[in-house]
Design a protein around this nucleic acid. Sequence first.
DNA 1: ACGTTGACCTTCG
DNA 2: TCGAAGGCCAACG
Length: 103
Amino acid sequence: MAVDDNFREIVWTVIMSIPPGKVMSYGQVARLAGYPSHARMVGGILKKLPAKSKIPWYRVVNAQGKISFPVDSAAYLRQRQQLEDDGVAFRGDKILPAMFVDY
DNA sequence: ACGTTGACCTTCG
DNA sequence: TCGAAGGCCAACG
């Protein structure tokens, strides 16, 4: 059982546990998964995620409360739309600190 | 084998 | 509040 496979699974589980209307940072996900220094790897996993996956990847943003895509990209708009549909409140391009799931 | 890259984080000024 | 700088670590070419 390779550690990497576990990591990927745990990350999925953690992300799926994020309640609707809330968000979590990459670092937070990594910590809860048991790999505190693997924030970047979380991003790597999400990037590889199949488009039809039911995992709510859009609920994962960076620690500054911003979407990790260029504001002019289609991906940015897509993620932002999903979040707003989910009830996540923005102030400008940043997500309010209160929207993060507390742990 | 080695330098570069990246859906990151934290500290500092 | 904002940007630069350093730290981090697996994946890639």
